[in-house]
Computed example of a mutant assay.
Amino acid sequence: MEKEKLSVEHVLAMDLPEIIVYAAPVMFALVALEWIVSAYQKRELYDKRDTLAATVIGLVNVGISAAIKVITFGIILFFYNLVPWTIPHTWWAYVLCFIWIDFWRYWAHRIAHENRFWWATHVTHHNSEKYNWSVSFRLGWTQHIKIIFFIPVALTGFHPVVFFICHQIAVLYQFWIHTEYIRKLPKPIEFFFTTPSHHRVHHARNEKYLDKNYGSTFIIWDRMFGTFQPEEEQADYGITTPVNSYNPVILCFHEWMDIVKDIKHSKSLKEAWMVTFSRPSKLAQKKEALQKNIDAGILEPRAKSA
């Protein structure tokens, strides 16, 4: 039997559950509870300006997601309709799809740390020097272009409804791992799943913790692909070059602005390509070395563009 072609209108008419919207009141209540407890214990895990910035970024992101919903649906549907096969819409399809999505979330996340262009879509999530449940709201306003990393899921033949429900659950999972209060869990859980302990490492700028623990729901991908790092020393949160701003627009676009500046100052197309797509940590090291040579008088500073 020939596979039924689906349209955006057809899928939207199904009135898919907005799982994240339903979960939002619980998430906000837990943020408030964690904030109150940390204040009572004088742990200073929250900063009101930082939390306000995270909340604004999160709310705007929800609006952007709703505004481009038809586009994201259209991309997934296009590739789903492209292949002649489909995976039956059954309970086990959700299990398989969730695991497959998580595999691609690992690679999308890893690339977003190891390629500066994609880092610009993700850095917002890391530019807070606090670590609490509100940090999970800090998702950059340009991060939606990462939908292209999930095209293989559509090409596998998972029904778009299965895809979008599993994807929402995967995003929702990220909330609870952004906390200092949940320490290490039993070993079987720590071995297979991404936990707060693993994710604290991921958000740290300690040298031994940089570019580690990309796993979204499952930490097994990091163990398989050599990017796993257990939590040992206390994490120092934030990015290696602090933004020093609580302005949501700056927090979402500072890396894009820096890329544009670096391209303008590039002397060749090759250099422009390098400053756009190099590994951010390697590029930062080169810039630091260059600045040291300038400060030492070994090199002359570049003339700024007019």
Rank of each mutant, 00 (worst) to 15 (best):
E4R: 15
S7T: 09
V11M: 05
L12E: 10
D15E: 13
L16H: 01
I20Q: 12
V21G: 14
A24L: 15
A24W: 10
P25E: 13
F28W: 10
L30D: 02
V31S: 14
L33E: 01
S38M: 00
K42T: 07
L45I: 12
Y46G: 03
Y46P: 02
K48W: 14
R49N: 07
V56A: 15
V56H: 06
V56Q: 14
I64Q: 00
K69E: 08
V70Q: 15
I75P: 00
F78E: 07
L82H: 09
T86Q: 15
H89I: 10
Y94P: 03
V95I: 13
L96I: 11
C97E: 06
C97F: 03
I101S: 06
Y106T: 00
A108P: 11
A108K: 14
A108I: 04
I111M: 11
A112L: 03
H113E: 02
H113S: 01
N115K: 06
R116G: 06
F117L: 09
W118G: 09
T121W: 00
H122C: 01
H122W: 01
T124Y: 10
H126N: 13
N127Q: 06
S128N: 03
E129C: 00
E129R: 13
N132M: 08
S136E: 07
H144D: 10
I145P: 06
I145C: 06
P152E: 05
V153W: 08
F158L: 11
P160E: 10
V162A: 08
F164Q: 06
F164S: 07
I165P: 08
I169Q: 07
H178E: 00
L185Q: 01
F192Q: 03
F193G: 13
S197P: 10
H198G: 00
H199A: 09
R200C: 05
R200W: 02
K208I: 09
K208S: 11
Y209Q: 15
Y209W: 12
K212V: 09
N213V: 08
Y214M: 08
S216L: 07
T217E: 09
F218G: 01
I220W: 06
W221Q: 00
D222K: 01
A235S: 11
A235M: 11
Y237W: 02
Y237A: 09
G238R: 12
G238C: 02
V243T: 07
V243W: 07
N244I: 08
Y246T: 10
N247S: 11
M257R: 14
V260S: 10
S266W: 05
M274A: 14
V275R: 13
T276W: 00
R279M: 11
S281W: 07
K282E: 12
L283C: 12
Q285I: 05
E288P: 11
L290K: 15
L290A: 15
K292L: 08
D295I: 11
D295P: 01
G297Y: 00
G297A: 00
I298R: 07
I298T: 03
I298W: 04
L299E: 04
E300G: 09
